[in-house]
């Protein structure tokens, strides 16, 4: 089965809306000279590690990679050229610290690096990568009922609704 088919079409459509809005809304594109190539093993590890820094495992729910969000987003990236290139750029940047690859950094080092990304120049790759990957990861992660533990919801709004009385 192709990666494209693996990702349910509805899911893909929703992600395309987010990614499309991001690139169009912010008037950015990835340089066409940057060729999209298949991700390396290291890039896969880097991407999964980055997602787990964004959405780590805790006492209530698993991490992004525990729920397969990295696999879903990589599959999506193969259907959207801009997103694919942004991931490659972003992962390459994460591994340019001069030390070991991002996935092998200490947890506190990873967090410090991502923290820096959140306040970096909006017009540079690290900030764009952080912002868009965060948004798309959240969309998929919090679509999983396993992540709702600790909130006031445990099922979709229908068919039961939320009948009064309410506290």
């Amino acid at each position: 089965m192709s990666k494209k088919a693996e990702l349910q079409s509805n899911e893909r459509r929703q992600l395309l809306k987010i990614v499309g809005a991001f690139f169009v809304g912010n008037a950015i594109g990835i340089h066409p000279a940057f060729a999209a190539t298949l991700p390396t093993d290291q890039e896969r590890k880097t991407f999964a590690a980055f997602l787990d820094v964004l959405l780590p495992r805790d006492e209530h729910s698993g991490s992004a990679s525990d729920l397969g969000i990295d696999v879903k987003l990589r599959a999506f990236s193969e259907t959207d050229d801009n997103y694919h290139k942004l991931i490659k750029f972003g992962c390459q940047w994460l591994n340019m610290t001069g030390g070991p690859p991002f996935s092998e950094l200490e947890s506190q080092q990873q967090i410090a690096l991502v923290e820096w990304m959140t306040t970096s120049d909006w017009n540079q790759i690290p900030r764009r990568f952080y912002t868009l990957v965060r948004q798309t990861a959240i969309e998929l992660y919090y679509s999983e009922p396993a992540t709702w533990a600790g909130t006031a919801i445990d099922s979709p709004p229908q068919p039961l609704g939320y009948m009064p009385p309410w506290q």
Binding site: L54, D58, H60, Y141, W148, A152
Partner: peptide
């Protein structure tokens, strides 16, 4: 009215801060 909106619009940041924030503020 759902956790995606809280995480993507109302609670900033990432990691433990983000996940704790969604649970603490939801509703």
């Amino acid at each position: 009215n759902g956790p995606i909106a809280y995480a993507s619009r109302a609670v900033g940041g990432f990691g433990k801060h983000l996940k704790d924030g969604v649970r603490r503020h939801f509703g």
